[in-house]
């Protein structure tokens, strides 16, 4: 069953067109990626889905409902969770306050605080620290935990491994697999192709403002030409 669908989505910042007809489909429970070179428009795609950058044209539907043109907070209430590249942790809120953030929006809560602290012991230790005092890895965990707390249906995750030490990258991978097991659908943006291949089932390749290729993980790993042509690896 389709959870998220983009049809011919165009998006631009003022004069510069970034997305020129993105079409994309994600089924419930999938963990799929959006791959592309630096500046291809991956972040722009996520921001457009989230409503932070309203599309110029095209249609975005979530759970069968059109969401293009809705305010970000409305889209969040429908069950779309967003973890931006910069993690978006509120520096002047404590870890606990950051976690309470979106939970009232949907009238139903996801993971309990106990479960989150059990799963992310590091966050438990730092529960009363301010967001500004967290390391990059801790911020990433908190940003993901925040979405779990809110019981979202879809997680838009922008380069979660960026700037993290190899050990932490592995931890994030484990967390994502576990999260997928719990039924959450994930759209992952990654520059780290190796990491993406370890956890994703399917890849979408963004090039020239469009999705030029979509394939299963196995296919993608075999097809080095695609990797070279569109991603430069």
């Amino acid at each position: 069953m389709t959870l998220l669908q983009l049809e011919n989505v165009h998006a631009a910042y003022d004069e510069s067109q970034v997305l020129s007809g993105v079409s994309l489909e994600i089924a419930k429970g999938e963990l799929v990626t959006l791959l592309g070179r630096n500046g291809a428009g991956k972040t722009t795609t996520l921001r457009t889905i989230m409503g932070l950058l309203p599309p110029r044209s095209g249609r975005i539907s979530f759970n069968g409902q059109a969401i293009n043109g809705l305010a970000p907070n409305r889209i969040a209430k429908l069950g779309v969770g967003y973890v931006p590249e910069e993690r978006g942790i509120f520096p002047s809120l404590t870890v606990s306050e950051n976690l309470m953030f979106p939970s009232w929006g949907r009238g139903e809560t996801g993971w309990s605080l106990e479960r989150i602290f059990h799963f992310f012991p590091r966050l438990h230790e730092r529960a009363s620290h301010k967001g500004s005092q967290l390391s990059g890895g801790e911020q990433q965990m908190l940003a993901i935990a925040r979405i779990l707390r809110a019981k979202m249906d879809l997680l838009l995750l922008d380069e979660p491994t960026e700037g993290l030490a190899p050990l932490l990258v592995e931890t994030i991978g484990t967390i994502l697999k576990e999260i997928k097991g719990s039924g959450l659908t994930v759209l992952l943006v990654e520059q780290n192709t190796r990491f993406a291949c370890q956890i994703a089932e399917r890849h979408n390749i963004l090039y020239g403002g469009k999705i030029v290729h979509t394939c299963s993980n196995d296919e993608f790993m075999r097809d080095t030409e695609i990797q070279h042509k569109y991603l430069g690896v």
Binding site: S92, E97, W104, G105, R106
Partner: peptide, 25 residues
């Protein structure tokens, strides 16, 4: 308070508060 935390969050990063379901307007 909770409302106070929302106000601080709005000061820190209004766009993110919006993306997390707060009616920022």
């Amino acid at each position: 308070t909770r409302l106070g935390a929302i106000i601080r969050a709005g000061t820190d990063n209004a766009e993110m508060a919006d993306a997390l379901g707060t009616n920022i307007s």
